[in-house]
Simulated scan of single mutants.
Amino acid sequence: MYIYSKLIESETVVCDIRLDNAYNQEELVTESQVNETSERADIQSKSRYSSGFLMLETYFSIRKKVTDQFIVEGEHIQLSFFLNGKSRMMEPLQDSSCDLDIGIMRRNYFKDYHRNFDMRGGNEVNYVAIYLSSDFFRKLVEKEHWAAKDSLVQRVLKRDESGSNDEICAISLPVLKILQELFRSTYDGLHQRYFIELKLKELLFLSYVEHTQLDTTYKGLENTLYTTLEKVKAYLTTHFDNPPTIKQLSRMFSLNELKLKQGFKNLYGTTIYAYVIHLRMQQAEKMLLEDYSVNEMSSILGYRSVSHFISTYKKHFGYTPKQALKRISQSLPLFVAFLNGCLDHSL
């Protein structure tokens, strides 16, 4: 499998990596980075790869229009996550194009892949792309019971590339968490590879779950409205730290404000405001366990004051962040004692 990415106008190479397709669990993970500045754009890109897979996380700060030429040679499974910015995907061989929606996950199976991505000036673009060789993919899912029901897995097993359209769904908060773990983990040696394989398997399972949920009822909504609301939800999931107003959302997605609010409540059983609060509080719980201070959490989650964050947290959970930390500190000794007791008993 060969992965190549280049900004055409500046001749800047973002990725140029050739991988062995065979699954080899004993091969270490390699990491590489690209940090380039040109007249047209600043680029920060990070790759993690080994035999059978490559993960690419890229940020573009674009001053003048650029085109990212992307080529992947070889049979592979692709998972892509468009997290921010404006970009138009073009298929040169088929003379077709489409705008990429923020907060959307795409997955597909290709023999070869050639796309150009146009990105306009004054634009901040962030995406993650994961490429798995077919051999690596099969080894990863071969013992998973859910895989027998996954349409993508079945296409790969049958070597069926006829379904050329991407399978698309909204990126969820658990998916975002896995993406962060894939690029931030700091394990040594083979432990890093084992960890990445576990997280890739978890990511594939979540992508299967998200797609099966698309088959559920639209709750009386017409298909176009359902699709738009899914895009709204996806955008909020990736921008809950700085969410747009209802009026801004209405303009962004060309949807009447009343229809937007009523449709969102009808489909997801909650208001847009409550959904953003829910996302922030989920993230706050995770950050508490990672030793962030209350001040840091308040700032990162987009609150203008610490007191507002604390009052929102207490209203949501029934206790303050400080009280939550106290509960955690009190429960840890009990958990350690329980583990020690289990070890003593086993000995």
Rank of each mutant, 00 (worst) to 15 (best):
D95H: 15
S250Y: 03
H239W: 01
E39A: 04
I328T: 12
R120C: 01
L279S: 02
A274V: 03
I168G: 05
E26Q: 04
N295L: 14
D118K: 12
L176N: 03
E285N: 10
V232Q: 04
E144V: 05
M119D: 05
G122F: 03
F338Y: 13
N165K: 13
E11M: 13
A284R: 15
E75F: 10
T30P: 00
S254P: 11
S331L: 11
Q180I: 00
L289I: 07
D291V: 06
S299G: 11
E144M: 07
D291W: 13
I178T: 09
D291S: 13
K259N: 12
R18D: 11
L140Q: 14
P244G: 04
L198W: 08
D99V: 05
R251Q: 13
K261E: 03
D95P: 10
K286E: 14
M89T: 04
D118L: 09
S61P: 00
P174E: 09
S331N: 08
C342P: 07
T217V: 04
E202C: 02
H211M: 09
Y109I: 03
Y127F: 05
S305W: 13
N108E: 09
S311V: 06
I277A: 12
R106I: 02
I168L: 06
F60C: 02
L182R: 00
C342M: 15
L289V: 05
Q69G: 15
D188G: 12
K6T: 08
S162W: 14
S50N: 08
I328F: 12
L325R: 10
S164E: 15
Q78I: 07
I300P: 10
N242V: 01
R107A: 02
V66L: 04
I71A: 14
T58F: 04
P333A: 01
K247R: 14
L325C: 09
A22C: 08
E197T: 13
M89K: 06
T30I: 08
Y268I: 01
D166S: 08
T212N: 15
S250L: 02
A234T: 01
S50T: 14
I277V: 09
R115F: 04
G189H: 15
V294E: 13
K219N: 09
